[in-house]
Design a protein around this nucleic acid. Sequence first.
DNA 1: TCTCTCACG
DNA 2: ACGTACGTGAGAGAC
Length: 379
Amino acid sequence: MSLNLKKILQLKISEKKIYELAGVKFNIASPKQVGEVLFEKLKIPYKWKKTSTNQYSTDEEKINELAEENEVVRAILEFRKLSKLKSTYVDALPNMINPKTGRVHSSFNQARAATGRLSSESPNLQNIPIKDEEGREIRKSFIPRDDKHILVSADYSQIELRLIADISNESAMMDAFINKLDIHRSTAAKIYNVPYELVNNDQRRNAKTVNFSILYGAGSTNISRQLGISRTEAKELIDQYFNTYKGLKNYMNKVVQDAIQNGYVTTLLGRKRIVRDINSKNALARTNAERVAINTPIQGTAADLIKVAMINISRRFEREKIKSKMILQVHDELLFDVLKSESNNVKEIIEYEMKNAIPSLKVPLEVGIGEGMNWLEAH
DNA sequence: TCTCTCACG
DNA sequence: ACGTACGTGAGAGAC
């Protein structure tokens, strides 16, 4: 991790400005104090539910809309973003470098996530920043072992949508994947009833949100909130969606029925997750369980798939005396430290084994492969 | 030790 | 009338 990055972050974190704007010195890292400053001292109207401990909620999603009009809020959110990067990554990761190997060695939990995913801890290398510009700098710090090596990243494209299409036998969605269409554009064309080529950015973005919402089993309330439209409009959109993808509606009904009947749901490869509250009289607990029943076979099958791919890649590497190493898994991505002379061969092996981990799939899988001198470049 | 917030897929 | 997105781990503050 470059010392540079640390200094740059330090400089950008400006507490003084916040104190001036707020007219008071306080601990910006304390959500309690932030709430009191914003909603009591500065008397910004508070219109949300308080937290379980009766405090003002100040998370980004809530106060983002206040940021437009309030410079203090903007500055606090900026402070939060930068101090998160500093404390969790820039300050912490260098301390976790093993003195013998000069590398960070994460631990992967194989039996912790309820869906069958791996999880990573000490440090967690599955949540290294990538979305924001400042965060991407951190990803650049992950580099190959030496100049004879490169990093190769291989990630599944739209894996969960492909799997829900396959598992639910949703032919319209499968056709879109078979024809290599942009799935969100294709979805937008269908739910807004416009030609594929004429889908506009808003329509595509909305369709994307709905596609992801479906994977989580979300209802109209949440979709309306996500899209910033009324619940009635959201309901119409969802009706259009399920009219387009009838197989998905059937799947969701069926999997919830399965859970009610058996008390558990399963992935395509037979992993089982018990769904406790599926018959609960408490509506909140029950609808939570329904979303779990809908999402688990999808997220879990994706987890099974990449695990099979990892095993097969490992076997091929052994059998073919490959010196390159698989070094990280991030749910739909595998990262490799690749000997340059092996690069072409290794990339072929990775792509083949990832695409063919479950030969019985009806939907084609796509794998994007990139290489570079750091993790950001490889992605 | 719990809560809140936020980083990722 | 009301209300929730699925799965994780970590740092800092509060208690």
